[in-house]
Nucleic acid binder design. Structure first.
Lengths: 141, 141
DNA sequence: GATAGGGCTTCCCATCATGGGAAGGTCAAG
DNA sequence: CTTGACCTTCCCATGATGGGAAGCCCTATC
């Protein structure tokens, strides 16, 4: 089948399929006489695998590892679990970071009247930001 | 003060300060005879404001709005709250998305023995991915 | 006065994953 | 034979940031 069909069958856009080939995530496929890429059902399975991995937030690099493990019949499941575990930790770190933002923002937002007056604790917080990262010494006059 | 000093005082890298100027987030500053950018304490305050907004996850575009509101003494706090509220919603959406990933991954990971055997429910899940986005009809045998 | 080092300038490139679009070849249906 | 839907490659854009080169400027040291 051609790339468009493979795209529909896998849920991966044609653009991305070509890109994945370019960066070596998938192998270059055979080409027809007119230079069209040709895909098999197996190729579609690989593309679906990639799509599912992406939907779980794995990077293309991680996806490549998982793909290699999937195709290695002698893999140790520990290796897969390791990739997953690290990804979970990464997600949880990012979630915590964003939750911290939400907490602060909700507090500030709660304190903001949100009416026609200009006074706004949100802006006050942004404007405050007393010290840069971690260097005190407010020196100038 | 020169850009390096402003960078230290604000916690924003020199690279970023120049970039913010380039995209119009901050106004071009005066230059010294030798063409060095010159910053005042007010400029540093603006940079800190930006840094704080960024640390709360606001995009540069949102930051620009907030900056404009901050500098508009006749602003209505409702406008600020609106920006914040939308950002909170966006963060919560992304958090929920990632939490969904974590939930799935933890389940799969929990079911994976993580030893020397090749059997792995994580890979099985990735390989399954029965249907593309929303088109059924598994036709080819 | 010459030189070394550090700061400044601009300009280009890379990231990560994705989409948009142009220019041109190919094919099937009408 | 034309039309339209494919396909090809190539370039550009996103958002925010960093890296680095080439070259100018200033200061301190020899």
């Amino acid at each position: 089948m051609n790339i468009g069909e493979a795209s529909k069958a896998s849920g991966v856009s044609s653009k991305m399929i070509r890109y994945y080939e370019q960066i070596g995530l998938i192998h270059p496929t055979a080409r027809s006489d007119n230079n069209y890429r040709l895909y098999t059902q197996d190729d579609v399975h690989v593309l679906r695998f990639i799509r599912r991995a992406r939907s779980l937030g794995f990077s293309l690099e991680e996806t490549q590892k998982l793909l290699a493990l999937w195709q290695d019949k002698a893999r140790e499941s520990a290796a897969v679990k390791e990739v997953a575990t690290q990804h979970i930790a990464d997600l949880e770190r990012r979630i915590a970071e964003m939750q911290g933002m939400v907490k602060t923002l909700k507090h500030l937002s709660h304190c903001c009247s949100g009416d026609g007056r200009p006074d706004c604790p949100i802006l006050e917080d942004l404007a405050a930001s007393a010290a840069p990262p971690s260097s005190a010494t407010p020196s100038n006059h």
